[in-house]
Design a protein around this nucleic acid. Structure first.
Lengths: 154, 154
DNA sequence: CATTCTCAGTTGCAATATGAAACCTAGTAA
DNA sequence: TTACTAGGTTTCATATTGCAACTGAGAATG
């Protein structure tokens, strides 16, 4: 029993999805990040655009900072203000955010999202997030298989 | 004031990330889906491998079914048993799951996850989920820009 | 320089969600 | 016919969230 519980805890520690959710899985965290990706930086901006309760926002920002996803930067020109900006670790969540957005767009809100992420050089929208092989070819579901790591070739 | 609240509600309805999170953003939902992707189908399997409370599991499965992400299929050979399996809508969450897993693997639990998703034909692991242009070329952060939909070419 | 306003919170309390454990019901196995 | 199993539900305790009012440092205004 205790062992089983321990095994479970261990499993959750090993599972990177569970680990990721510890950082960004709480209610509002993702929407705060969406805001940050769209340029929001200040407490009042997040609060008024998301309509989140102030104490919860305060808590979520603190946790995201603790987890190294946002950086808290006091503004030197106005000492009341604090800017919250994405760290590299936070910026690296972009694929998660885009996948989720595209899924929601496809299956729930048929309305296309705004703004759109484009290739700066060509100004063309990015491709849908998809599973691809090592050469960048898109793989359909039928082409995929789960393999135990031990069965991977050298 | 009421208008502002309404505008906010409207925004959340329009935001596909918020919409997606309504379906899969509750605590445990993602881990249940991870289990489903790894082959779990039965109540007792989810319960014992995740260690989730039975009433919560019951609630989450019902909600995922409501939202068309899982299908509830009574087993004809044993009328006690019920199989929960991913629908197409649910299977389409794979990119989200993989992005999250890769992020967790990179930034939190350095340990590589198991099992691994491979190209069935070559048995080689899939490429990391990344932002790519329409031709499949990977785009770095510096190459990306947010553009208002109205500014898109034709 | 006194007053007012803004920003980023905190506090207290009510409403919800979650968790643990026992219980239930239909169906299967011995 | 008795025991056991799968998939829940119920009850009650605890934790999380939400709302509204309040605070305190600092900036803007007159």
């Amino acid at each position: 029993m205790v062992l089983d519980l321990e095994r479970h805890r261990e499993m959750l520690r090993r599972c990177s999805i569970a680990a990721a959710l510890e950082s960004v899985g709480e209610r509002w965290s993702f929407l705060i990040l969406r805001g940050a990706f769209n340029g929001l930086q200040h407490f009042e901006e997040f609060q008024s655009t998301l309509g989140i309760a102030r104490n919860i926002l305060s808590n979520r920002l603190a946790r995201l900072v603790e987890n190294g996803i946002l950086q808290r930067e006091p503004d030197p020109t106005d000492r009341r203000r604090v800017a919250y900006r994405l760290t590299d670790k936070g910026l690296d969540l972009l694929p998660v955010l885009l996948s989720l957005r595209q899924w929601g767009e496809k299956w729930i809100s048929a309305a296309p999202s705004n703004p759109v992420l484009v290739d700066r050089a060509t100004r063309r929208p990015i491709a849908p997030m998809a599973v691809r092989d090592a050469d960048g070819r898109m793989l359909s579901r039928a082409e995929l298989e789960w393999l135990d790591r031990s069965e991977l070739d050298g």
